[in-house]
Amino acid sequence: MVAKVATYIFNELGFNVLLATDGVEALQILDKNSDISLLFTDIILPNGIDGKELATKIRNKIPSLPVIYTSGFTDGKLSKEDYQQFNTQFLQKPYTKNDLLLTINNISFD
């Protein structure tokens, strides 16, 4: 449900969203779509790959890819240093459309 709301907001903001249900599917989507401009991921994901590991694997292929992590709780999986990396933001759940927009505005898409 949360992913659907985020997808709706991103679509309203003009983004074309490729939705994955877990990190494994996200990596499969990346293999088929190399022109991804932003990774928006929860920290806690099902099926063995968390958001931090997902971002690391994707940034190995696309080093400059902007990342926005989101979570209601990080379960200790994300340190402050992780989301202070270049072009990385953290958005605490629950968030509003305005919160998401402000976070996106802090990202560089160069």
Results as ranks from 00 to 15, higher is better:
residue 5 V to F: 12
residue 24 V to C: 08
residue 56 T to L: 13
residue 6 A to N: 14
residue 34 S to D: 11
residue 17 V to N: 01
residue 51 G to Y: 04
residue 52 K to S: 05
residue 67 V to R: 07
residue 12 E to R: 11
residue 91 L to T: 05
residue 84 Q to Y: 04
residue 2 V to I: 13
residue 24 V to D: 05
residue 4 K to E: 14
residue 55 A to I: 01
residue 3 A to E: 12
residue 68 I to D: 03
residue 55 A to Q: 00
residue 11 N to W: 04
residue 107 I to W: 02
residue 21 T to K: 15
residue 57 K to N: 03
residue 17 V to Y: 02
residue 73 F to N: 13
residue 7 T to G: 09
residue 49 I to H: 02
residue 44 I to W: 10
residue 101 L to Y: 13
residue 67 V to E: 01
residue 10 F to W: 10
residue 105 N to H: 09
residue 73 F to P: 03
residue 46 P to L: 03
residue 97 K to G: 04
residue 57 K to H: 08
residue 9 I to N: 01
residue 100 L to K: 02
residue 87 N to M: 02
residue 20 A to V: 01
residue 25 E to R: 12
residue 39 L to D: 02
residue 7 T to M: 11
residue 75 D to F: 12
residue 57 K to R: 11
residue 63 P to R: 06
residue 75 D to V: 05
residue 23 G to K: 02
residue 1 M to H: 15
residue 14 G to W: 00
residue 41 T to P: 13
residue 70 T to Q: 06
residue 16 N to G: 04
residue 34 S to H: 11
residue 72 G to A: 12
residue 58 I to P: 00
residue 28 Q to W: 05
residue 52 K to C: 05
residue 78 L to V: 13
residue 87 N to L: 12
residue 38 L to P: 05
residue 50 D to L: 08
residue 87 N to P: 05
residue 25 E to A: 02
residue 28 Q to V: 06
residue 35 D to M: 08
residue 109 F to E: 07
residue 24 V to T: 07
residue 6 A to D: 12
residue 23 G to N: 00
residue 67 V to S: 00
residue 70 T to K: 07
residue 48 G to S: 04
residue 47 N to S: 14
residue 71 S to A: 15
residue 40 F to L: 14
residue 43 I to R: 07
residue 101 L to F: 14
residue 99 D to P: 06
residue 86 F to P: 05
residue 54 L to G: 05
residue 107 I to S: 03
residue 21 T to Y: 08
residue 65 L to Q: 01
residue 65 L to C: 05
residue 92 Q to L: 15
residue 19 L to K: 10
residue 41 T to V: 06
residue 104 I to D: 06
residue 103 T to L: 06
residue 33 N to A: 01
residue 105 N to K: 15
residue 98 N to P: 10
residue 107 I to C: 14
residue 62 I to S: 14
residue 25 E to T: 09
residue 24 V to L: 02
residue 52 K to I: 06
residue 18 L to V: 03
residue 24 V to K: 09
residue 18 L to Y: 07
